[in-house]
Design a protein around this nucleic acid. Structure first.
Length: 170
DNA sequence: GCCAACGTTGGC
DNA sequence: GCCAACGTTGGC
């Protein structure tokens, strides 16, 4: 059976909190702390293993796409919602019906230099990107295959997976 | 640091 | 169910 077509996303992170270099060091991480229902629905229902993700630095200098990652797990409950010491603890959420979900991601490649927000804004083909829309605060937004291709072209790297995707148990 | 744009909360 | 108040996000 053919692999379903690869889809693409942009995930925001404040690099002071977690950066592409942190991910390169860790190799793989869980994308926790999402507390927005629209984004929750993306993570729970739409993000799939093998999808490509742009790593975007928000609240940073410069604001930029600093690299890419690969989704390596489907959505599953974010355990930090149950932890009273966690920053994003949600006392209203119950373990038997979790409110918040997360996915696991794996480092794919680092963009050197990064593709800055200014560069994104300069390219007519990227004008529709969620992250560029005025007032957009979603920390996860869909990216089209064309936007993915253009950004890799700007970065000067191939837009295929950086390495063969590890086969994961399902 | 400012503030516009949002999402959430809670009184009614 | 409305909506004002509030807190947060995040670009500028």
């Amino acid at each position: 059976m053919p692999r379903p077509e690869r889809r693409f996303w942009l995930f925001k992170s404040e690099p002071e909190s977690y950066s592409i270099d942190d991910l390169k060091r860790d190799g793989r991480t869980f994308w926790d702390g999402i507390r927005n229902y629209q984004v929750r629905n993306f993570l729970r229902d739409d993000v799939r293993v093998g999808d490509g993700v742009l790593f975007y630095n928000s609240n940073a200098d410069p604001m930029a796409v600093t690299g890419t990652m690969t989704v390596v797990s489907a959505g599953y409950p974010d355990h930090t919602q149950f932890d009273p010491r966690a920053k994003h603890y949600d006392p209203a959420s119950r373990e038997d019906s979790p409110t918040w979900f997360m996915v696991d991601v794996e480092f794919e490649r680092r963009f050197d230099p990064p593709v800055t927000r200014d560069m994104l804004k300069c390219h007519a083909g990227l004008a529709g990107m969620g992250v560029l829309q005025k007032g957009s605060r979603l920390s996860v937004t869909p990216v089209t295959a064309e936007e993915w291709r253009i950004i890799h072209q700007i970065a000067g790297v191939s837009d295929g997976p950086a390495k063969k995707l590890r086969r994961t148990k399902t």
